[in-house]
Amino acid sequence: MDGNDLETQPEDLNTSNTSETTTMQLLAELKDIWRNERFAPELLPHHVDLVDCLLEQVRVMEGNVGKARGKEPYRCHVHKMELNRIRFMLSNYLRCRLEKLELFTTHYRQLSAEQQEHFLSPAELTFLNNFADKTDELLTNSVAPYLPTGMPVLDAWKKNPARPKLDSFVFVQPKEVLEGVILDAGTQDGREEEIVTLEEGGQYLLRYSSVREHVMANRVLLM
């Protein structure tokens, strides 16, 4: 359903031939990234350009639909549905990221600057910093006035912040052959480390930590 109706648009609802195919590609990419983000226990690297591109596309399409209002209502209807679907996917993806940020605030704040740049978009970074500051303020100022002066409130909490559980299990479908995947590394189960090769298109249930780099590099799909 995705690309079909976009392909058969009449002239007035079409932008140009090149952007038509890129929209489909963009959507396919977004779908993969969205799925991975949903199932990964930690925040994945940001794709701000993809998001911006799609938002631009949505805006253009909306403008076109608005112009062609009176002529073909069914087509407009279908296009509007499509726009709603794209918006839903984007919203869900971004919301998922925000939720992870809000959950693991301290952890992400403690990352180095380059790591932060890699994982968070600039807007998310601002959001994270403000949110963290304000929440700390709330938690401290609600109790500090009644405590002995100078007593730190959040020290224990900050020492052991909640961190994403990188050992949780995920279903994995590699997009290409992956060699040298290490299983059970560093766990206390007493099992030995194993190195395996994952086939392309196969489905596996593994710890997230084993395939972490591959997920970041978009070589696998999480299910």
């Binding site: 911006d52 938002l55 631009e56 709603n84 839903f88 919203s91 971004l94 807007a123």
Partner: peptide
């Protein structure tokens, strides 16, 4: 305010609206 600022960056996409698949 923070949330609104963040959503402004996203070209005004209101994240609170599309909470269920349409």
């Amino acid at each position: 305010t923070e949330l609104t600022n963040y959503m402004m960056e996203l070209d005004g996409l209101n994240l609170t609206v599309h909470q269920r698949p349409p």
